[in-house]
């Protein structure tokens, strides 16, 4: 089933960070749609919960060197 994850990051300062995060999350298996909100410092992603989880996505972002402050999942 498709679920919606919202990751709150600490402040993003360079627009190229945004592209980086977007590409990394998009290429993760099970992710259907990604939107990175530069100013709000949020990543919104639709994902298939059989293939991946919000925690996995948070790990992807953390690996890029950004701190994930809060994870929220909506059905």
């Amino acid at each position: 089933m498709t679920k919606k994850a919202v990751l709150q990051l600490d402040a993003l300062t360079c627009p190229s960070c945004m592209q980086k995060i977007e590409n990394a999350v998009k290429n993760h298996a099970g992710v259907e749609k990604v939107k990175v909100l530069f100013n709000a410092g949020k990543v919104k992603a639709d994902f298939n919960d059989e293939q991946t989880s919000a925690e996995d996505l948070a790990a992807v972002v953390t690996k890029l060197g950004y701190t994930v402050e809060k994870i929220k999942v909506k059905a």
């Binding site: 190229s16 990394a24 060197g65």
Partner: peptide
């Protein structure tokens, strides 16, 4: 350089 490398891994040519 760390940032540059991370970006390159996801195929982004960054300012870094």
């Amino acid at each position: 350089m760390l940032h540059a490398y991370q970006a390159l891994r996801v195929k982004v040519i960054s300012i870094e």
